[in-house]
Amino acid sequence: MEVAYYPGCTLKTNAKVFEESLINAFNKIGIKLKELNKWYCCGTVYSLATDNLMYRLAAIRNLIKTKEEGFSKLIVPCSICYNTLKQANLMAKEDEEAMAKINAFMDEEPDYDGSVEVLHPLQILAMKLDEIKRMVKKPLNKNYACYYGCLLLRPKEVAIDEYEMPTIMEKLVEALGGSAVNFPLKNECCGSYNVVSNKEAVVDRVYRIITNARKNNADAIITSCPLCHFNLKEMQKEVKKLHPDFVEMPVYYFSELMEKAFKEG
């Protein structure tokens, strides 16, 4: 089975390990992730935060390309890209006036009508739990804190699961033979881009999130967002400076766990 796949800029640069492990893991369960021939930076959340329609062009262009290449579904692993493309797609379906403007401006492209389905890999995996269980060679046997961050769950129109008490990542962990801890800060914002301009706020968040995970017996924390991953992982040494008794915790992409569990020997 082949599905259209949108990597986004970060999976090609800072988060290469996310892309590699995701492609490998999906291969093992019989799904080929076919990267779009032509794709463009989605414009990230900045595009959603402005009134200017121009910033939505990038996202819409990607959806048009998906259709042009003959696909009706688009898998988007990066939480930020997922949220951006999904919201743009919603606008395409619901805001006729905005889409009329965008289609008129993009006069060299076919008009877009919102007909592509934007999906997160976790949504696909949720339907393949049996295949996943079958492919497990080395059960994970550890405790994992499933960290969602913001963008997989908010706003609710784009959420991949129940936004107060999601369980989609936990079910994956269990299918892989691991144990998912219940940790209340699973959908607490990591601080996002504040790591650039207001690092202390992020350091504080990371401290609380990881401490909370550890309190609930987690051995490691998993995520789907390269920015969350960066904050959670790289800011731990800053946390250590402020809280000497802080114990560090490894951070993984959920696909890395899949790769680990599927590996022979």
Partner: peptide, 12 residues
């Protein structure tokens, strides 16, 4: 470069 909004005006 990060400001590119994919408007395609350059290509045109």
């Amino acid at each position: 470069l990060a400001r590119c909004v994919s408007c395609n005006t350059c290509t045109k």
